[in-house]
Design a protein around this nucleic acid. Structure first.
Lengths: 220, 220
DNA sequence: AAATATTTTTAGCTATATCTAAATTAATTT
DNA sequence: AAATTAATTTAGATATAGCTAAAAATATTT
């Protein structure tokens, strides 16, 4: 059964909203995520239900099926491999890749993806630190640490924040500790837990333990 | 004015059928090329006429406009750059690239194409020897020579045949002188014009002047 | 120049993916 | 338990891109 581009996008959204298929998802939530109207979603859910990639009970939301999960993971795999390509090979910036990858992920060619994976040397994580499912849909989780839990001299990349208030994000932006920044722990002060951190191999940053505890990184 | 994928494909077909915009093209010819029905073509020509990429006079065929030519050349540029990528970087074979490139050419991102061009080191020709238009639509023509016109010790790649009869193609297939083969002229016999040719750096081939005259190559 | 053949267009239909507005069902208050 | 609110679905549009069958225009014969 072949899915259209629109169907693939809906399925991916449902997969994400359902936390990888662990909970059911409402029509309104899908509409919000896809930036369409609930009426359009109802139509699409009927189609996806007919194709047996979701289980659809009218008025009671949807659950993704095993087949649907497999399809969604394959789309995610393609998306993330293309993101690696764009950043590693074409020098795209971190925040420039998403839209293009959104188009590239729908190219239909298993050989292309196999060869791309090989060309990129079988990456396990995309530039955002998100895991790339393998061809069977298996994903390697990678633990995220708060900066204050990292050892002196260890390196990594900022992938998320615990506190996503405007004030905190603004502060991070100002000091250059953006999502995606490569970091190295230079020093930790015993007394108050404050830290000295090297950002992108060029800029040294001082931050309180409080701030460090709210920044999540992957270790490399 | 944005063109849909279908519109881009029609425009490209019209560009090719019109020999780069030098002659007008009939509805039936477009239908044959696109493998659709003339009725569908009439609809599409009206749309393309409205978008001013072709000049459309009912019952009298179409001519491509300057704007249309620019658009078609850009699509061709993208197609051929992706073909280079697939062959040079992902080890696709020569005859495996067309369908995938047909999808990739519709990805909308000028930055992507600019970076891809750079990554591929600004290639001027695709793996079939066809020229890649630059960002302004300018193309470098490259002369094609019959093998018997090539000098001893010169190298190149087979790009076309003059005689495309089944018998001739079957013969070429059998001896390994396929379209795309890299060749080197090892010797030419003065007496009868027959030639000795190295194919893909490993196989030596003897052929009559008659055969050589029917194989076209690009010199490298 | 009329008849015939060919080409092209139009009319009306199908399918996908969207929308708005109205109707229906489920959930929450009172 | 009835009334109200919220969520969801259905009905009826629109736009794209295709189709068949019929009509119309052009081209070719006789």
């Amino acid at each position: 059964m072949v899915l259209t581009t629109a169907e693939e996008n809906y399925l991916k959204a449902i997969y994400h909203l359902s936390d990888g298929g662990t909970k059911s998802v409402s029509t309104n939530d899908v509409a919000a995520e896809m930036k369409t109207k609930p009426a359009s979603v109802s139509d699409m859910l009927r189609k996806l239900g007919d194709k047996e990639v979701i289980e659809y009970r009218k008025y009671y939301g949807v659950n993704i099926t095993e087949e649907g999960k497999k399809r969604a993971l394959n789309t995610i795999r393609k998306h993330r491999l293309w993101e690696v390509f764009l950043v590693d090979k074409l020098q795209f910036a971190w925040d420039e890749v998403h839209e293009v990858a959104e188009e590239l992920e729908h190219i239909q060619s298993p050989l292309l993806i196999q060869r791309l994976d090989e060309f990129l040397n079988y990456p396990k994580f995309d530039p955002h630190g998100d895991p790339i499912p393998d061809e069977f849909g298996d994903v390697k989780a990678r633990p995220r640490l708060a900066l204050n839990e990292m050892e002196i001299d260890s390196s990594g990349q900022i992938v998320a924040v615990k506190d996503s208030s405007a004030a905190f994000l603004k502060y991070l932006d100002k000091v250059g500790a953006y999502i995606g920044a490569r970091i190295k722990i230079l020093d930790k002060v015993e007394f108050d837990g404050s830290m000295e951190i090297l950002v992108d191999q060029k800029k040294t940053l001082f931050m309180s333990k409080d701030v460090a505890a709210n920044i999540l990184a992957i270790q490399s």
